[in-house]
Nucleic acid binder design. Sequence first.
DNA 1: TTGGGTGCAAATCGTTTGCAACAGA
DNA 2: TCTGTTGCAAACGATTTGCACCCAA
Lengths: 164, 164
Amino acid sequence: MNQEIKDRFDAFVKKKGLRKTGQRDAIFRAAFANEEHFTAEELLERTKAIDPNTSRATVYRTIPLLIEAGLLREIDLGGDLKHYDPNFNDHPDHAHLICVDCGKVIEFSDANLQVLEDCIVRRLGFRPSTSSLRIEACCEQLRQTGTCENLINARLVRRKLPVR
Amino acid sequence: MNQEIKDRFDAFVKKKGLRKTGQRDAIFRAAFANEEHFTAEELLERTKAIDPNTSRATVYRTIPLLIEAGLLREIDLGGDLKHYDPNFNDHPDHAHLICVDCGKVIEFSDANLQVLEDCIVRRLGFRPSTSSLRIEACCEQLRQTGTCENLINARLVRRKLPVR
DNA sequence: TTGGGTGCAAATCGTTTGCAACAGA
DNA sequence: TCTGTTGCAAACGATTTGCACCCAA
């Protein structure tokens, strides 16, 4: 768990005149225990492993808090369930590539893309706020060989594309 | 209503061994009557104006058909309701900019963006499939003057950014 | 004729909410 | 103490489904 982010959450809670509770701590720890994306139900499961007393309602009430604090983002991975991404603190501008062959998710950053999006928004007469890019793509290697070196042993992979 | 798209839908229905029905025709016409995005419930409303006999269940059963036929796309406009976009036939590569000040949606195309996305996907070792880009942005003019010339008299605006 | 299509209402499922008990500050 | 917080269960709202009847082919 990232202590700096936890401090930001605690500060946010205090500034709003809210209270620091055991359940909120447990939910926070569950959300930021690792880099995996999760659904509300998955967060409940993870939280119960830390504090079995935490209820579904409290999880559902805490997620919007984490989002309002700017620590968590809702992302669209396709499918019917809402997913949440705890990685925007360390990687503020990442986007998602979803392998249509195996469903795994690759988080990537590309400086060219950030610049281009910024230009587009300005040319349209706006000031940039947030953007979310989801790319679905096919993994040729997986299709041809039945496996895919990029994805072995990881549900989630991160790539930083160097400018060139 | 676009006759070419209608022909494609009819051909799709026939090829799948399904039947051409009055309700499916009405739902199709409602979906492609104009370029506005819509939710399932809005599509039901529009369809009832054409054929009052059409039921909610049939609308919900027909939307996946239109998507499978490649004529309609689900899009993420933020918020809790699913929205559908009938404009990918005429504008296959457009993305969405959502004004956080007034909520209106601008569809735009940018060739540079398409090329860059293609490059990114290949550099990550994949073959491009589909992508969806949603940008949230602030309209300075609206904030400062209380109005916004780009958006007056239109819920949806389209822009094509020339390469330069 | 016949198997797919439809409308209706009930069921489902993720999420929200009312309320009484609880607990930080 | 004084409010915000919680757990529970009921409520909610979008979507799906079972079933009897309907109708396109």
